[in-house]
Amino acid sequence: MGARAVRGAAALVGAAEFAGLAARLRARAQAGGAGGPRGALAYLTPTQVRVAAGEIRTGRSISLAAPVETRPSPDNPDPARHEMTAWHRPEAGASGHGLHFARDRFATNVHGDADTHLDALCHVVYDGTLHGGVPASTVTADGARELTVALARDGIIGRGVLLDLPRLRGVPWLEPGEQVTAGELAAAETAQGVRVREGDLLLVRLGHRRRRAELGPWDPAEGRTGLHPEAMEFVADRRVAVLGCDGNSDAAPSRTEDVAYPVHVLAVHALGVHLLDYLRLEDLAPVCAAEGRWSFFCVVAPLRLPHATGSPVNPIAVL
């Protein structure tokens, strides 16, 4: 998966250490008002949305989503399916006169490793519960009854902040298996002259998309860069409303004993933080660098899916 030596391979996080971290973060979320059904979205108030609108200076908008792919690849073996249901077919005797419609439909695996999507709070089941102690039995074959993506039906709108970790380390991307610590997130803030505040949408660039574009796709289960579990202390300290990444925030292979996706457990289950997975930040990062500012107005609009555990999204940054 690359010739450069892997850095940032942290020591194993033991089961007891992880359980203690999860308990601390859960208690902090409850104390801060994020223990309810909206989770950390409770930190994002209408006042903060109005203030975030002040981030707009040039009016330039940038998509933070990757194009939806319909061809299989190592990281996307079950891609979205696009089917045309009506089109112009002169060979079938269709007349060129009058009104005709082209029609199509899509089917997608929301929680894959390629397409950009939002994880709802019902997505992570841990020790028989969802966020806030909601029983896992509320998720059935018919869909979820609580903590669904419908909690974000009116959109997630606020101040976005981009922290660029390859820029901090002076590399084009972080290699699969590397992990980002809370200290590095704070160091990126300092280097970029920005501060993550309560209610922000924190977006972390790891370089996953650039590596994929230049070296080709790979199976992320074999190796993926992500955040170290203790980096969730930073997320809790700043009362982040939403966490997004150009991977899925979790490193692979996991260095946490008996937990394959520790960041998902800590972010979604303990802190009630919605996750944005597999963003495309390669268009945004150079604009932020050129303008010397790393905060912006951000809009995330999931589909109106009442019983779903997540949704495809096309987040938009407005600078």
Results as ranks from 00 to 15, higher is better:
Y43L: 02
R57F: 03
Y43T: 08
A15H: 14
E178F: 01
P90D: 04
A53M: 15
A236E: 11
H274C: 04
R60H: 12
P90T: 04
G193W: 12
A186L: 06
H274A: 04
A94D: 15
L41D: 10
Y278P: 14
E222H: 08
I62N: 06
G36A: 02
V273S: 08
L266Y: 14
A136W: 13
G310A: 05
G199S: 02
S295W: 07
V6K: 13
V110H: 03
R293I: 03
P286F: 05
F296W: 05
R209M: 08
E291V: 11
A141I: 00
S63A: 14
H269V: 06
Q30L: 05
P302Q: 05
G8I: 00
D258E: 12
L44R: 08
A241W: 02
A107P: 10
M232N: 07
P46L: 00
A141W: 02
E189F: 01
A42L: 09
E291P: 09
D113G: 08
T225N: 07
I316P: 06
E230W: 09
D154P: 04
S63W: 11
V265P: 12
E178M: 03
A86I: 01
D154W: 01
L165W: 01
S73P: 10
P67N: 08
D104E: 07
V259W: 07
T70G: 12
P302S: 02
L21I: 10
H97F: 13
L279K: 03
A53W: 13
H274L: 12
L284T: 04
W173P: 06
E55T: 03
D283T: 05
P306Q: 07
Q48L: 15
G128V: 00
E257Y: 01
I62G: 01
P172C: 02
S61F: 00
R153T: 14
E55R: 14
C245R: 05
G247P: 06
